[in-house]
Write a protein that binds this DNA or RNA. Structure first.
Lengths: 230, 230
DNA sequence: CGTACTCTTGACATAGATCAATACAAGTGG
DNA sequence: CCACTTGTATTGATCTATGTCAAGAGTACG
């Protein structure tokens, strides 16, 4: 399922915000203790309750983190892109158990660094831990916002808010390329695919957006769209 | 509204998990740069968007952190007890703005430490930042769990889950003393006071709990209660 | 002891979940 | 490169949990 490569220099260290302030020499030292691992699409990298003591850094591809409730519904927590890391729960707390699930949503290459090694680097280069803290703090902020949205806002507002975070502009076209399937978007926004589908259709009927393909959505008037949600 | 005291030794440093591994001398050094501030019940310590660059440590009393959505509904994010800290968003990220609201839910005394001073201590005593990271990581985990619950679970399950985290035992009595008003509980669980009220009544009718006072709730059979939610 | 919350209960409205059937898209193997 | 299979997306019909509005009861506090 997962197959291993060994390089003397592992590229991913160089790309990652938590390490890229280091010099070449320092980075290649760290790289030596990192294992590169590949996963195919849909592979489960780890599950809730798994004992583990490595930090995962995404080198290539995308990973989805989610939780399961008792009735088996999934709540997507976040999507990791290259340069993002995960598994810090297992590293920075005394109990080394994962609290959620990580799934490859494309072919993925990952660098894994052991807790023990990581601790050495944290001691040697204190800037690393500051960057990690900054990242985790940011994520806490995002997570708290997501909690509020999921608990208090109508689905339509959540969608609009989500879209507004992914808008791009190009020669007076405003559009969004959804970073995940609508199924996963539903899970991220705490609703069902059916409801997502209906709400997108509703926005389209109101003339606010146009769905060119399932993932490519044109936005006619962003301000009006934002206004309509409040 | 808030009145200031100056002590050469500020007690709160001693009590706080992120500092209490330091020796007396180190703690009193830090204490010297900490300001103790008192707030009365219902005072707002800070609001979303406020520029600020201090870390807040709760010395006495309880503080509620919440967010507001556009329609003015509050989502309670967490309740701080003595020893807990907040405001790390403003400290550990480059932009020094609060992203949520903090309100005293009792009379409160707080220690405030400036970003600049804090950074010095982080450099001098690296263990502090590790403890902070561990705390923030833990909170991220809790927040992600809360997101899932608010998004995916029925209100009754959320209540039961909440109760199960606060159960105490005493001479074959199982009970919960609610750490906040039902109004605030509603906000924490992403619902309304009315719904909370109804669900508690429903649990009582099913013979699973008995509400002796508004905040003191006896639980007859915890296992059965937990079972009934799944 | 009365003013002001918080809490409870009722009646009613509705957003969104669920179930089911069909259409679309993408990936696979011949 | 085209059938075929599998998963994703859409749309409709129905059901239900929970929100909203309103009125009364309980509690706490000055």
């Amino acid at each position: 399922m997962a197959h291993h490569h060994h390089h003397s220099h592992v590229d991913c260290i160089r790309l990652v915000p938590i390490f890229n302030h280091l010099n070449e020499e320092q980075m290649s030292l760290i790289a030596q203790s990192a294992h590169e691992v590949h996963y195919e699409k849909n592979a489960l990298l780890f599950g809730s309750g798994d004992k583990d003591d490595t930090l995962y850094i995404v080198n290539n591809g995308r990973v989805r983190i989610y939780n399961l409730n008792e009735s088996g519904r999934e709540q997507t927590v976040r999507i990791l892109n290259p340069g993002d890391f995960m598994g810090e729960v297992a590293i920075f707390q005394t109990e080394s158990y994962h609290s959620n699930y990580a799934e490859a949503i494309s072919e993925v290459s990952i660098c894994r660094i052991h807790k023990k090694d990581m601790n050495d680097y944290l001691d040697a280069y204190p800037e690393i831990i500051r960057r990690i803290l900054s990242d985790v703090t940011k994520r806490l902020q995002v997570s708290e916002k997501q909690t509020m949205q999921v608990g208090m806002e109508q689905v339509e507002s959540r969608i609009i808010d989500f879209l507004s975070e992914y808008v791009e502009n190009e020669e007076n076209h405003t559009y969004v390329t959804l970073p995940m399937s609508k199924k996963d978007l539903a899970s991220y926004l705490g609703t069902t695919p059916e409801t997502i589908s209906r709400k997108f259709s509703a926005l389209e009927e109101k003339g606010l957006i146009k769905q060119h393909t399932h993932k490519y959505i044109e936005i006619f008037d962003l301000d009006e769209l934002l206004f309509s949600s409040s």
